[in-house]
Design a protein around this nucleic acid. Structure first.
Lengths: 241, 241
DNA sequence: TCATTTCTGATTATATATGATTACTTTGCA
DNA sequence: TGCAAAGTAATCATATATAATCAGAAATGA
């Protein structure tokens, strides 16, 4: 059997079964263990499978499409908790602004089972996740793509967002403080969040405890303009929640 | 037997079977191993098949998506071949329109090593790939995200594109025919491509041989408005190339 | 017609793939 | 923790496939 033909067969087998052992492949494909191992190594180098001791496992194709950034992996639990708290607010037929942060992106993953939800976002990853969810109509702001943040910004993005009015704006921030209000470290991101806030009926701020009491350079809005703060810690009284 | 006739037979055989060996082809087509090997090499250079030691395997369109290590780059597929042909056209400092097709997306992956390239695209994946490349400034059209195509479309996307003027428009299509011109099966995608064509100095059409002579519902542009057609087969004279 | 180019198959030196062997690593269990 | 079993990577000899070269055959074009 030809080398690539054999490797293709291995891939086929791994699409039907989650995992397979070297011995099984060896028997199925009439090749020695050494040959199978070399095939598996080649496939792994190409990113097609993942090796395990004694065999290989399937890599599912969407997980490799957009490799998770480090930022999303850290504090995963906290973000998941915030998403679960936010979810009950949402109803069928609503229109939502969602910023490009990884916290809000986490919420996007859970937007399943709704009908006629409309989302306007400047987050590339959020948009691509929502694209796969039935019942969600996605609008992306477009504009200049900010390299490291995977988010759109700039005049065009703001103009785009201004065309809509939403039931909720789901936003995150770098810091929130009773005196200074909600702050962000990047002006491009901040100005777009201001647009979201202006054009939404209710503003939901989602941030973990580490942001509380922090102050950053760009002011987004005073605490009073936030309808609800969703966080994983007890909030002091000054936040008016 | 003529060389091209023999190569077509090889392709036919490989459409029915996953893989075939040089010896088998040699027997089936009454030619020496050397001749078969030369045919296979030609087909591989055109991106039509993938060579393996002892024979060749069929290229199936999903498996070729992308994980390509350096060593695997020697095995080119059709989209890769087109990308390599298009690359020399591009110069530092230029502005490019790129559509959302997978063919153009492949070109995007190679846009490395340039300076001050500006790209306007409606392709979600193209945008996210370019975001990671230094020297490329990415603008995404935004607009309604078309679920299955991972691309933006609609009025907003068109309005956005109209704000720019580009040196090149790199577009793909479903069909091209000397009489009907360039066609597409989806109107949303087609109307955006028309905007790209109108606002670009030169239009480069990239498509593999299977599109030649095909006609689809939505007309994009006549053949004359295409500055250069990049394909992996010999073009008949009527295409004016 | 002849000259030129392209194509072909034989030859050979080189490169690749394979399975056996062996020494080493990981795993799981006591 | 340490030991046995299972799995692996490295090496090697062998078989097979390949690219490179060449000379003759077939097509091409003046």
């Amino acid at each position: 059997m030809l080398p690539l033909e054999r490797q293709n067969k291995i891939l086929e087998i791994l699409e039907q079964r989650q995992a397979v052992s070297v011995d099984e492949l060896s028997a199925l494909l009439y090749s020695s263990g050494a040959t199978i191992r070399r095939d598996l190594q080649a496939l792994e180098n190409g990113g097609m499978i993942r090796r395990t001791h004694g065999g290989a496992v399937h890599i599912d194709s969407n997980s490799m499409d957009f490799p998770m950034t480090l930022r999303e992996n850290e504090n995963l639990n906290a973000k998941e908790v915030l998403a679960q708290k936010a979810l009950p607010l949402i109803r069928d037929g609503q229109t939502l602004f969602m910023d490009s942060s990884s916290t809000i992106c986490r919420l996007a993953r859970h937007l399943t089972g709704f009908q006629r939800i409309r989302v306007i976002t400047n987050g590339l990853k959020t948009a691509s996740i929502l694209a796969d969810i039935d019942g969600v109509e996605v609008y992306s702001t477009g504009g200049r793509l900010r390299d490291n943040a995977m988010s759109f910004g700039g005049t065009q993005a703001m103009d785009f967002a201004r065309q809509f009015h939403a039931d909720y704006a789901f936003i995150s921030c770098r810091g929130i403080d009773p005196e200074v209000g909600v702050t962000e470290s990047n002006e491009t991101e901040a100005e777009l969040k201001r647009v979201y806030i202006q054009n939404a009926k209710r503003v939901v701020l989602m941030c973990d405890g580490s942001k509380i009491g922090q102050r950053f350079f760009c002011k987004i809005a005073p605490v009073e303009s936030i309808w609800k703060i969703i966080t994983n810690v007890q909030l002091p009284a000054e936040y008016g929640q």
